[in-house]
Write a protein that binds this DNA or RNA. Structure first.
Lengths: 340, 340
DNA sequence: CTGTTAGCGCATTCAG
DNA sequence: CTGAATGCGCTAACAG
């Protein structure tokens, strides 16, 4: 590949194909009629000279960057990664291209990352699990198309794509009840921080209501507040054991805590699922490889990414769009035992 | 909404501070002397009007984008995520900002992702585990500052940042030997694809040489070729068991395969570490939470990211730079048992 | 349909 | 040291 010498511009291909630069611009943008022969000539020249329009010039002249900012909270997260994959796939067909940033679950970092995205003049925004204030979010919404994934914001219901945590949690708990478990402990997600409160609180509610529906009054002694991190799952086991109230199953608000709990049980010599059954939430890739493989709840991450992408693209084109509440699915594996 | 948010330009702050736009440009870029009073006036105006220079205009006029392209192979990878974190931290202090792309371990995707990076006119490139041909890489090197992480390319030794796989692997195997193990199996990484050959082959070599140094001739029956994926670790167990040659320990070329192997052993009722000891490589975050916690090798990912960032920045400034071979560290946990 | 012309916002000579 | 004048490469009116 004999690469670049001097940047070739629209001017070059205009001369090469014997037309004016505006005509070139027209065939390239496609939003104006051009005679077929000229069109072909231009295309040929573009191909021959391997022309690449200068995005800076385009952006400056048109006022659009043709890019969509995508903010994750952790590149390393398997769940967000799957969403990103969906977004990439969804945006691929359009003329827009994604611009990634990572908030690392820290408000200050996310704020700055958002600024750089804004500085790059993104035309729209997809925010995953954002921790920003709803005021800021409302404000952003006024400025450009916006889709918020995995967090519901009051006043922005239209733009939020969330999973039905309550229902999934209800089902997971019911699964345990159906298998004969009466004493089911729950390790919650973070509940105090108002920002991430949603998921944790909803999953807790689903757990409690499932018990009630089965005629069992939820016991506070069987509920331990976690933080969504492995470490908290590990600690939760100690807490539960200390409290002394027996249980035959544990439902953790996510797989990471379930993993932590698994280790805690292992250290105590408690077998899974022989002594205690375990269920997680999220279906981290590795959960299928735990010993035993973990029963958990899978969110259709990739689809969610696709939907989010489609929604922004529609907004960008002024088309109507809708974001339904997506439902998660229980993945049954060997970490749950049927008892009598 | 657009009323109050009229884009403010350099022109606005020029008027506001009573100087010309060139003076404004000077104090902002800092590469030219400006009288202190004027400087202050400009800064004040910038602050007051909350001025943000238009990157497109800057890029178009200067020919630089002030951005560094960063290509990963999988946003979801914990290892690469840690490297990205290091890169972000390393680039933060400079005026450059990172632009991310994901090659998803697929050459075609990586190629396209690289193109979009190039279209955005990145000033430099950091490639993680790239699968591109060395010819393309050589070519890129001619066009801009370049750093390749986790892959060594002939002719580009200067620009590659790699970990000493051989040494780490040698140490891991020696650790097993020191604990009394004589029959040590090895699940290799991918060996056939020339692109990712390095890591897998080097780890295999380290394993073999450690055995030889201990006076043990490596047995082909105890080596199974894997693909770096969990699934292959699972299958490897079946293969090993079928071959019938006994072993008391397994060294997998990465944690994912170790996890797969762990499940395979579990399914066969073989206990870890009581019956078989297990060692991985990479120290995935979750490895510390496996049951039992996995002994493995940790690569200083974040530091590597920092070094990569520093190296590109130096290149960008025409300064000299050097990329040493970094060494990994054995993390001892409960998955290895001392036998007699 | 198509060529000409004016900017987009900023960095950079080039004269003072 | 500083202001005025040129483009950077492209889009979008504006005439033909």
């Amino acid at each position: 590949m004999a690469a670049s010498k001097e940047r070739i511009t629209i001017q070059d291909i205009a001369e090469q194909s014997g037309v004016s630069i505006s005509t070139v611009s027209r065939v390239l943008s496609g939003n104006a009629g051009v005679t077929e022969p000229k069109r072909q000539a231009v295309l040929a020249a573009v191909d021959k000279l391997d022309y690449r329009p200068n995005l800076f010039a385009q952006g400056l002249a048109s006022g659009q960057s043709m890019s969509i900012g995508v903010m994750t909270q952790n590149f390393g997260s398997a769940f967000y990664d799957a969403i990103l994959r969906g977004i990439i796939a969804g945006v691929e067909k359009s003329n827009y291209s994604p611009l990634f940033a990572d908030g690392r679950w820290r408000t200050d970092i996310e704020r700055r990352a958002l600024q750089t995205l804004l500085n790059r003049r993104v035309d729209a925004l997809i925010l995953l699990g954002t921790q920003l204030d709803s005021d800021d979010l409302l404000d952003l919404k006024k400025q450009m198309p916006l889709v918020i994934v995995s967090r519901s914001v009051a006043g922005l219901e239209q733009n939020c794509l969330v999973v039905d945590n309550y229902k999934a949690s209800f089902q997971a708990t019911t699964h345990l009840l159906d298998r004969g478990h009466q004493h089911i402990a729950h390790i919650t997600g973070a509940l105090s921080e108002s920002n991430v409160l949603r998921d944790g609180a909803q999953r807790l509610a689903g757990y409690q209501d499932a018990l009630r529906k089965a005629g069992i009054e939820p016991s506070p002694k069987l509920v331990v507040e976690g933080s969504f991190r492995s470490q908290s799952g590990l600690l939760a086991i100690e807490t539960l054991l200390t409290r002394g109230k027996p249980f035959s199953a544990i439902f953790a608000a996510n797989d990471q805590m379930a993993t932590g709990a698994r280790l805690g049980l292992y250290r105590r010599g408690i077998r899974v699922p022989d002594d205690v059954s375990l269920i997680g939430f999220d279906d981290q890739p590795h959960s299928a490889y735990m010993t035993p493989p973990l029963t958990t709840v899978r969110q259709p991450a990739e689809e969610m990414g696709l939907m989010a992408a489609q929604a922004v693209l529609n907004q960008l084109q002024g088309k109507p769009f809708a974001l339904p509440m997506v439902s998660a699915e229980l993945i049954v594996r060997e970490s749950v035992k049927h008892i009598y």
